[in-house]
Simulated assay, not measured.
Amino acid sequence: MKFWKLHGIGNDFIAIDKRFDQKSSSSYSNLAKIVCHRRFSVGADGLLIVKNSNRADVEMVYYNSDGSRAAMCGNGLRCFVKFVYDNNIVTKEEFSVETLDGIKNIKFNIENKTIKVNMGRYSFKSNDILLDNNKDKFINEKIKILDKEFNINFVLMGVPHVVILVDKLDKEEVFKYGKEIENHNIFPNKTNVNFVNINDYKNIHVHTWERGCGYTLGCGTGMSACAVICNYLNKVDKNVNVTSEGGCVKIDIEDFVYMTGPAVKICEGNLEV
């Protein structure tokens, strides 16, 4: 099975073309667990699968490394775009991609090698987020995790995200509390967890514990979610640079949320599966 491995600011993916595979989009869970294993296979945070679409130019099917399917992945979408464009699956520089989170419109800037993706609309509504509470929004709510109390903010950015504002980023805290928050019973479908430090009105830094993956060098939906929450709290502008350990993307908050950043091919080869 031919594959490419790519990364978007350190968030790495395996991409495969399954347009002519008769399997359904929901049947690749076990394949994701096999090929994403970092000891026994190529290894990645997730698996990107190209499928034909009746609604858009192409469909992106995405699975986390633990085999769970996700509705959306921002860095994954940019890597998916590079894969389908470079392999002439789609030949336009502006095109549409079907995801479980709806149709995403793409603009591939060949000149500066960046990809602008429409991340969709965010939602604070509890009935969209499926939180086990009676609140209309879940903003600045206190929650006790192990030995520490956190003020958490929750937003649906295609997938669920907790955003926690901190004075200083501490990776040890991300590892200590991230998994606990991800699996807290207030989030029936689990959640992604982001710790964010605000540098100034135009720049923030983020560490993300990704649902189904663990700590990641970059999470596109998470970086978008952090920008949305920080803007909602009047901490940053609607146009903000968001930096993670793996790199930086630009987030623009309009009627939709837009993310602009790079996608890089690492290698290609054949998988024995």
Results as ranks from 00 to 15, higher is better:
residue 8 G to I: 09
residue 17 D to Y: 10
residue 21 D to S: 15
residue 25 S to F: 14
residue 30 N to E: 10
residue 36 C to H: 10
residue 38 R to D: 01
residue 42 V to L: 09
residue 43 G to D: 09
residue 47 L to A: 01
residue 53 S to T: 10
residue 54 N to P: 07
residue 56 A to K: 02
residue 59 E to T: 08
residue 59 E to M: 12
residue 61 V to G: 03
residue 62 Y to W: 13
residue 64 N to R: 08
residue 65 S to K: 06
residue 65 S to P: 13
residue 66 D to R: 06
residue 69 R to I: 12
residue 73 C to E: 07
residue 76 G to R: 00
residue 85 Y to K: 07
residue 89 I to C: 00
residue 90 V to M: 00
residue 90 V to Y: 02
residue 102 G to D: 04
residue 105 N to W: 05
residue 106 I to E: 06
residue 109 N to E: 10
residue 109 N to G: 03
residue 113 K to W: 00
residue 113 K to P: 03
residue 116 K to I: 04
residue 118 N to V: 00
residue 119 M to Q: 10
residue 133 N to E: 06
residue 142 K to A: 02
residue 142 K to Y: 08
residue 145 I to K: 08
residue 148 K to G: 05
residue 152 I to M: 07
residue 165 L to V: 09
residue 170 D to K: 14
residue 177 Y to N: 08
residue 184 H to F: 08
residue 193 V to M: 02
residue 194 N to H: 05
residue 197 N to E: 13
residue 203 N to P: 12
residue 209 W to E: 07
residue 212 G to C: 14
residue 212 G to M: 03
residue 224 S to N: 12
residue 224 S to F: 00
residue 231 N to H: 15
residue 236 V to N: 00
residue 242 V to M: 05
residue 242 V to C: 15
residue 250 K to L: 13
residue 251 I to V: 15
residue 251 I to F: 05
residue 251 I to Q: 11
residue 256 F to C: 09
residue 267 C to P: 06
residue 270 N to A: 11
residue 271 L to N: 04
residue 273 V to L: 15
